[in-house]
């Protein structure tokens, strides 16, 4: 398995758009990591924000001794800095939630496949139920019930996403349990935990892993949408989506920069994650058709 992953990742990239998207994605991650070092302003520190310079157009000289390259928002936050810091929150939220959701989905899927009977029925009923509703609604109800906060939004996204993993993993795990080596393991009376963790899990992990990049992309979009509806991150620590939402109300007034630039950054992020994610899935999972 490991060898295959290495082989697949080593393949030359498909088409020029993918190279671009890989570079863009890498740049996004680097920018997010380096944000505190390179952002001219810390938009979370009220002392660094000058309220009287709110809604300055791009290119205005600020009191902080730097130029507002992309202008300021309605509270005087530098848009460049807001994008960089917002990127951190968007990535933190989406990667954390996708990873935890994958873990939960993996466990649930493998358990359902291995134990079968009522465990399977219970888990898959829940999964079916949840997947019969659009993800956005599940996330919406979850965040409304949980309340605001970065930890809550991560939780809401996990709740919204685990079912997808569970269904995919169960399918694979089910076909694995039918294979001869599993019967052999059972006959050898290996402990259940050993069978699951040593045999079933490693063999079912690939489909879950291939899903992660795409689900991270979904998570970014979901978080942005929730924040846009005013249900997500705290107001003083906006993610990219929340920044776009804050700026949306200024769109009609001609202060386009408040939402346009963060919006473009967001779209670029989501697009590059998805393009890379699609590619990872296509390489790792030849069975999946590109739909």
């Amino acid at each position: 398995m490991k060898a295959e992953i290495i082989r697949v990742l080593g393949k030359p990239p498909y088409g020029p758009a993918l190279t671009v998207s890989k570079i863009v994605l890498a740049a996004y991650i680097l920018l997010a990591l380096a944000a505190p070092a390179i952002a001219p302003q810390n938009p979370y520190d009220p002392l660094q924000i000058y309220g009287w310079e709110a809604s300055s157009p791009p290119g205005t000289m600020g009191s902080g001794g730097y130029i507002y390259l992309l202008g300021t928002d309605g509270l005087g936050r530098d848009i460049v800095s807001t994008i960089l810091y917002g990127l951190r929150i968007s990535l933190l939220v989406s990667i954390t939630s996708a990873a935890i959701a994958a873990l939960i989905g993996l466990t649930a899927g493998v358990s359902a496949a291995y134990f079968g009977k009522w465990v399977d029925v219970a888990i898959m009923r829940l999964v079916d139920l949840q997947l019969s509703l659009p993800t956005i609604l599940v996330a919406l109800i979850a965040i409304v019930t949980l309340g605001p906060g970065i930890d809550r939004i991560i939780l809401a996204l996990i709740i919204a996403q685990w079912a997808t993993y569970a269904r995919v993993v169960r399918g694979v795990a089910l076909s694995e349990t039918g294979k001869p080596y599993m019967d052999a393991a059972r006959l050898m009376r290996l402990p259940t935990s050993r069978i699951i963790f040593r045999h079933l899990l490693p063999n079912s992990i690939a489909p879950a892993v291939t899903l992660i990049p795409i689900e991270v992309g979904h998570a970014v979009a979901l978080e942005a949408t929730l924040s846009f509806l005013g249900l997500g991150v705290p107001i003083d620590k906006p993610s990219l989506g929340a920044t776009v939402a804050n700026g949306f109300q200024y769109l009609l007034t001609g202060q386009y920069w408040i939402s346009l630039f963060p919006g473009l950054a967001l779209a670029g992020l989501i697009a590059s994650i998805n393009l890379v994610g699609e590619d990872v899935r296509r390489r790792l999972d030849p069975r999946s058709r590109s739909i």
Binding site: G217, H218, A221, L222, A224, T225, F228, G241, V244, A245, F248, L251, Y256, S259, L260, G263, L266, A267, I270, A271, I273, N274, L275, E278
Partner: peptide, 18 residues
Amino acid sequence: SVFALSVPSFWLSMMLIL
């Protein structure tokens, strides 16, 4: 199509309004 499918609908709406 990857792009159109992945961007959030609020972003698309905003661009259409713009």
